[in-house]
Nucleic acid binder design. Sequence first.
DNA 1: CAAGATATGGAGACTATCTCCACTTGTCAA
DNA 2: TTGACAAGTGGAGATAGTCTCCATATCTTG
Lengths: 189, 189
Amino acid sequence: MTAAKPLRADARRNRDALLAKARELFASGCFDLRFDDFAKLAGVGTGTLYRHFPTRAALAEAVYREELTAMCARAGELQATLPAAEALAAFLRGFVNHLHTHLGLARTLATLMATRSDALADGGRELDRAMAGLLAAGVEEGTIRDDVGAGAVMMVLQGICTACDEPGSREDADGAVTLLLDGLRRRPS
Amino acid sequence: MTAAKPLRADARRNRDALLAKARELFASGCFDLRFDDFAKLAGVGTGTLYRHFPTRAALAEAVYREELTAMCARAGELQATLPAAEALAAFLRGFVNHLHTHLGLARTLATLMATRSDALADGGRELDRAMAGLLAAGVEEGTIRDDVGAGAVMMVLQGICTACDEPGSREDADGAVTLLLDGLRRRPS
DNA sequence: CAAGATATGGAGACTATCTCCACTTGTCAA
DNA sequence: TTGACAAGTGGAGATAGTCTCCATATCTTG
């Protein structure tokens, strides 16, 4: 599914150079760089950049794909080793924590979530699935309400991701997670 | 504070034409129109457009300022006529409802909230204040928790606003509000 | 190693944004 | 009214990103 094309050697090299440079730049806070300049900085031509990553979002997604996958994997681990409600809490708190030390990821996720209908959104869907899994386990366990879907939770996360690079947003993000977790608890109706 | 400059007659006319046309276009779903074309369509020159509204966001804010103010006023009314917790619930449910029939407003709010540090954000701050008021009343009343600030709630609202024009987001938005309201309830600790 | 497939790079077309200023229009005091 | 000054106008063109195109270079495979 992923290995449809055995990229030529030099092509792979260029692609990697692009990714490496992008990662480096994102890590140092440069997000709004002129797109063409990514190419220049990575030592490849503009055309090459556009061939590998048709849009800025595509580049961002590729850069953070691994990281996102790792986070989703973590959701699985938590789910396997903790009671569902705790796993959910641990995941969400870890998520917010991670976002605040990886603003590039936050931006990227915000973009991905806002682009649901697109091909490059499967990164977003991955997170969606992880979330749905955690919730389902909680419902099963009886500690999480069953009348609110994963979409609603994702919507809140989208807000958090979007607001992330606002200075001083950390506290509010934690507050939002608190609300989320308490809101999700099954209510003794 | 608002009446610093008694705009010349023709200037006001142009400004109004611009606003009217923008309102009309927004209402019909055209948000991403070439900015210069607003001018053309409203029958004024590009320069005039830019003088009155330096950015797209400024135009959007002006278009929805009234509406936003009305919403905030409504928060006040609710607060005056209902127990705080109910006022909060009514406001939030009304808010989401309104957003989903006024997508332009949703977009605009999403933008405003993402632009906290700017001059044109006072529209956003207005909402912020209304929210803070509702919460404070609830805390006073003893039905709303006091350990989570208005910022956290606004963050969730931002997510809702951003996701609004996704088809089928209505249900999720309602879910998010449910989570929010239940999460905000003072817990019998 | 030759031939075909694959990939490159960067000049320049294209597009949206925004500025600038010679000119028009409104205002107001006389 | 009218003259003179302030206020506002419009739209051509400067500026700056984005993206395409294709002659050329580089890989790969038989």
